[in-house]
């Protein structure tokens, strides 16, 4: 089975890099596609704009979605993905530094699969990344297409 991509929606290049490294150090070798803002993320998911021609049915193995994004924020991105039949079930983990209750509630209400807070301590993040990879890439059965 061809390895599916991991979509990382993250405007902070440092965070993107660290996430990539965290995944890598946990031996998660899936291709990581980084979208720098909400619009780009949706373009990738739906094969529009910059990513015209990409099949939306080729859903990422997991999407790590930051909430605070330029142009279109993460919650809106989540809402649009869940509103589309093709992408309704794709696993999305909110990965954010926000610990605001309102963000948590909204995230779950809009149908995120998981909510992970980016810790300052990189060691903790490594643990989180490992768990994420273990669960979503190895243990979780994706919904049938």
């Amino acid at each position: 089975m061809a390895q599916k991509v991991i979509l990382l929606v993250e405007d902070n290049p440092d965070d993107a890099e660290l996430t990539r490294r965290a995944l890598k150090s946990n031996n998660i070798s899936n291709q990581v596609v980084v979208a720098r803002d909400g619009v780009e993320a949706l373009d990738y998911v739906f094969g529009t704009g910059k990513h015209v021609g990409r099949d939306p049915l080729e859903t990422p193995a997991i999407t790590l979605l930051d909430l605070k994004l330029p142009k279109l924020d993460g919650l809106e991105v989540l809402r649009r993905i869940r509103a589309d039949e093709r992408t309704k079930f794709m696993p999305i983990v909110i990965l954010t530094s926000s610990k605001e209750d309102q963000d948590l509630i909204n995230g779950y209400r809009l149908g995120c699969n998981s909510y992970v807070r980016k810790p300052v301590d990189f060691d903790e993040f490594l643990v989180a990344a490992k768990q994420l990879g273990l669960y979503w890439l190895l243990l979780n059965e994706p919904p049938p297409m």
């Binding site: 902070n12 440092d14 965070d15 660290l18 490294r21 530094s97 980016k118 810790p119 300052v120 301590d121 990189f122 993040f125």
Partner: peptide, 9 residues
């Protein structure tokens, strides 16, 4: 927090 994460990471 983002810069802190970078520093630590």
């Amino acid at each position: 927090r983002a810069p802190l994460r970078s520093i630590d990471g």
